[in-house]
Amino acid sequence: MSISQDSRYAYAVGRIRVLENKLLDKTKMQRLQNAKSVDEALLVLSETDYADLVAKAPNPYDIDAITTEEIKRVYLLIRELLPKEALADLFLIKYDIHNLKVLLKAHYQKKDFDYLLVDAGLVPAETIKSVLKNDQLPSIPKEYYEGVKAAKAAYEERQDPKVIDEVLDRTQTAMVADMASKGGHEFYRRLLAAQVDLVNLKSLARVKRLGRGRAFLDDSLLPGGTLAPSFFTPLYGSDWAQLVQAFSLTPYKAVVEQGVAAYLESGQLTTLEKLADNFQMTMLREAKMFALGPEPIIAYVMAKENEVRNIRIIMIGKKNGVATAEIAERLRESYV
């Protein structure tokens, strides 16, 4: 019965509903943006939920450390709220994939990138490291193992670190989509499908802009979206107007229209990328309508990820003296 299905999440949703209040709202984000210096921005952060982290950080200027810590806090919370749920895993896979990428590249470039590892995934970063070093691959999830094998093969063939990213990205998408549909998380599956579509759209635009060839595009397109890769490939050869035309019957009509218009004007794809992210946020806001299911939890995590990304953009911008208007340009809409 569907009754027991969603009331499982009642406790978790209860906590999330309160935590949502602590997400930074528009005014706080605005003040953060308008801060005149990194110190002032840190002061603003100290009034928010981040106060603790800022106060305890060994180096408060190291915004990456602070935000990573926050993300970890969120995942720990999700683990606690959903101990037996594969749902929590869905969010963590990308950190394992990130670690795998880092380690593989370090391996091939003979450098130490350990400081880039993020210990937030399903498998502790140390384990992944030792497993890769000692070549005991079978002790990590099979998909990772296959992914690493494929990535190694691809690298040895092409000698380009980029292919490692591509192969592992595909592993990630396939894995997450598979788990989401197995877990019956319809909302999340839809979000993911849209995400894949938008990533593909961005790849298409980028490859087209740089003119890197159809084969390159074929390599970077991800499966699993609502639009098949075969939808994107023919568009490589067509002009931008035709591209807009092709998307006019998809939900991404507005994103493509405005994004392409901005590109034709400025030669930059930033607007398109931003619109794509905002599109996802709009989808995410649907979760506010769900009273009891897993949706609010999923939305909270993604909202938090988005918030952290925005804070990073602002703080790094402040550090490097980027103008406020320019920072604002790069920010994504927030959930609240």
Partner: peptide
């Protein structure tokens, strides 16, 4: 305003 808010946050803590 920011300064007062920060002070209030301190006292709240």
């Amino acid at each position: 305003l920011g300064e007062v808010e920060a002070r209030q946050a301190d006292v709240g803590f």
